[in-house]
Design a protein around this nucleic acid. Structure first.
Lengths: 124, 124, 124, 124
DNA sequence: GTGGTCTAGACCACG
DNA sequence: GTGGTCTAGACCACC
């Protein structure tokens, strides 16, 4: 499980964990139907409290990204279930690109950065 | 002063204000040496507490971005400092792209969306 | 045996099974004295653990709804007991209506939806 | 704050609290824009832990039902934000009605119960 | 003053 | 074994 938490990061730990898992799923490092590590194990691995991981799992579940079966662990549910409307997706994209433009980056540099990120997301 | 605050945004308000001003400076909308609005006025304009703006100004000052002179308000001290490092810009970009991938969008669709946004940003 | 289990359902699986059987009995689809499917078969049919079905049967037995005879399976003992009290039926109804009201539906719209559903339930 | 928690209830406490507040909002007992009680006060009133209430508030917030401003409490946000698609609302309604029909209630009895509940929800 | 998060540890429910 | 919930108490961040 390639997850790291960073205390300097302003996001709460449970959020970092949820985001990290989200990224792993997006990149295909964890395939649909595959199990996630048990709460307690992941908590021990990351050196955080069990409840912190439980909160992260709960968030992912309410997003429809994972399916939790009581007594038999959590698995990645269908990616389709996680669909958001394209409108909801555009907002964060526009915001990220705006900052890059305002920072003086040129079109080509931005496209290169996007390509770079997509490569690491999709190819893994 | 083109600043908006968004209650849904997870960032604290003072952070949104600081980030917004940083962006205005980076984009050249506020030139070096130019004065920033008085604390009280900005607070009134945005409908937030005075302390909130004060905290934002304090953050910008400790970043060396603005100079606060007691009795005569705050002025922009350095535009260069406002530039975000490419690393800081990457985070939001990655997050936005991750969500798009998770939603099942294909590489081509994402690139098209990026192109679309960039066009409206750069061309105007 | 018209039983379905829904992983998204917040009720535990054994509860869904018990509720489902209770409903079949209440509706007369399984008559008094008639046998229920063997534990193992039902477990296989639903693709769940044997213990899960056992727990469901145990609950039904302690409610006096079914009789389990060692070696010869379970049979329906009382149809009357399967009837839910009106109070128990009100809870889910209130919850469903609450959500509709919260969604902004007007009284007439809600009544129309109820009528719609009742028609398909009773006539069809 | 007309909220009660019932230990016999199978739902977790935080869920009962969230559902209860949802009902109060639906019925108009708490109007849009009005503040909710502070976490600590509600926790004390109900005799439960602060975290339990925090979990309930978090759920309501992620549903868009309330707006939480750090440092200045939680308020009821626009009811419109809580809208669910009619399809999502139909499922629970159908399930509740099905149980009533199977329990032997007649159409008139069911409609009367619906009317009864709607009256207490909308009129308050 | 407000809410948010985390820990430690306990106990329950499910399969 | 798995996840879920709750408590007590601490500390932080925001306004």
């Amino acid at each position: 499980m390639l997850l790291t938490i960073d205390i300097q990061d302003r996001r709460p730990i449970y959020q970092q964990v949820a985001d990290g898992i989200r990224r792993l799923i997006a990149g295909g490092q964890i395939a649909e139907g595959q199990p996630l590590p048990p709460l307690r194990q992941l908590a021990a691995d990351l050196g955080v409290n069990l409840n912190t991981i439980a909160t992260a799992y709960r968030e992912l579940q309410s997003d429809g990204l994972i399916t939790v079966k009581h007594g038999s662990g959590a698995t990645v549910s269908s990616r389709a279930a996680a669909k958001q409307s394209e409108d909801e997706l555009r907002g964060p994209l526009r915001s990220a690109l705006t900052d890059m433009v305002l920072s003086g980056m040129h079109r080509a540099q931005i496209l290169s950065a996007v390509d770079d990120e997509l490569r690491s997301l999709i190819q893994g």
